[in-house]
Structures are given as structure tokens and as C-alpha cells.
Simulated scan of single mutants.
Amino acid sequence: MTDNPWTTLKITSLYENPWIRLEHHDILNPAGKVGVYGKVHFKNRAMAIIPVDQDGNTWLVGQYRYTLEEYAWEIPMGGGPIGQDLLESAKRELREETGLSAEKWTEVMKVHTSNSVTDEVGIVYLAEMLTQGDTEFEETEILQVKKLPFSEVLEMVMRGEITDSISVAGILKVARILGY
């Protein structure tokens, strides 16, 4: 069944900032009963990049994640405003966080980060034929960047050292594409 079995009765915006909007939905559920639903609407599309050089190396970005209250290693990623070309946003983000630019870009997957509470959509790209330049960190970013063999990054996923959902999904997909 592909038709929407939910009926929206009313949407109330509870909170908004430049990145998200929190909504309260009064609904009729698929059984026809009155209920509620909370939704976090993202104002940007998530994009993540897995750069891989000719020697099979990739780059990870480490930073303290405020919402988790812990340090995390993940693939380069960021947000691109809805309505702007997502690939251009991905190119900008890769350059800002790693200093890299790539000649070859392949979209490898679309992912929903938490489809029970948010409409966030993420796109993962494989970036190849790389050229190193300078990073351009944003003022809110204190990042560590490290270059590692892709096989080692894959093992970090398997050991649970990389936990960001887009990073995990993207690394596993690219591992399959590259034959790991």
C-alpha cells in the first residue's frame, strides 16, 4: 500500500531557528483515531562526502557534537539550503572541511536519518580524482581532519568507533562499490 493512511487535522509550529522547525501535528491515525505526532523539519538537505584518493585513502573529520555531548569521527558533511544545487553544496563542504576538491563525483545513496520524527534527507557522494588545498573552517567548527586507508575507516565502523548514521551507511555502501 503506497497511499497515505494518515490525515493531518492541524499543524502548530512550536519552535523555529535558522536550521529546524519543531511542529506539533494533530492527526487521525491509520485506524481513524485522533492522535498527535511531533515532527522536526530540517531547513537544509544533509550531504556527506567520502573522498577516496588513487591509493585508497579517505578523510575523516572529528569534532565535539554538542547534542551528544561527545567527540565523534565522521565523513565530511554539512547542510545545503533547500533549493540550492546539492552537489555544489557538497563541493563547498568538502573544500571547507578538508581542503580537498574532486574532479569525479558520484551520488551513491539517499538516506533518511530518522524517519519517525524528522523529514531530514541526506545524500552521500563518492568524490574521486582529488586535489589538496587549504581548509576553510566555519567559525563554529573546531575540527580535526585525518587521512586514513579506507579499509581502516571501514574497520572503525565495524568496531563501533564511527556512529553517525550517514557516515556508517555511506562507508558501508562505498565499501561495497569499491569491493572491500
Rank of each mutant, 00 (worst) to 15 (best):
I123Y: 01
E93L: 05
Y71P: 06
K110I: 05
Q144H: 15
K104G: 06
P30D: 00
P76N: 11
M77D: 02
E141N: 12
P76R: 01
I82V: 13
D26N: 10
G35V: 02
T131S: 13
W59K: 04
Q144C: 12
I20D: 03
G56W: 05
D85A: 05
V61T: 06
G79M: 06
E120V: 14
E74G: 06
I82D: 03
I82T: 09
Q132G: 12
V40A: 08
E69G: 10
E136H: 13
K91N: 00
R65A: 15
I82E: 09
I49S: 02
L68V: 10
S114K: 15
L126P: 00
V52E: 02
L94V: 10
H24T: 08
A46S: 08
R45C: 00
G62V: 06
L143A: 09
D55G: 04
E155P: 08
P51G: 10
E69M: 12
V124Q: 01
M77P: 02
K43A: 10
S101Q: 10
V34K: 14
K33Q: 07
Y66I: 13
L68W: 13
G122Q: 03
E70K: 11
G56T: 07
G35C: 05
G32D: 04
E107L: 12
H24V: 08
E138G: 06
F42M: 10
F137D: 00
K110H: 10
S151H: 13
K39W: 11
V124Y: 00
L130Q: 07
G32Q: 03
E69F: 12
P76G: 05
L60W: 04
A48D: 01
G79R: 03
E138P: 00
Y125E: 04
L60G: 00
L130I: 13
M109E: 04
D85Y: 04
Q84V: 11
S89T: 03
G99C: 07
E128Y: 05
T12R: 11
L68F: 10
S116P: 03
A102P: 01
Q84I: 05
T58D: 06
G122L: 05
W19A: 08
V121N: 01
R21M: 09
E70Q: 12
V40R: 06
E107F: 05
T140E: 11
V121Y: 04
T98D: 02
M47Q: 01
A90T: 01
E97A: 02
I20F: 06
L14Y: 08
I27F: 01
T106Y: 09
G56L: 03
V52I: 12
T118R: 07
N17C: 09
E97R: 02
M129V: 14
V124P: 02
R65F: 14
G38N: 15
L86P: 00
G122A: 15
E16G: 08
N44G: 05
D85G: 04
M109P: 02
N115D: 15
E138S: 09
T106W: 06
T140M: 07
E96A: 10
I27Q: 00
V121F: 05
Q54Y: 04
T106L: 13
G32H: 03
N44T: 12
G62C: 11
K146N: 15
Q54C: 03
N57G: 09
I20N: 04
R95M: 07
L100F: 07
K39P: 06
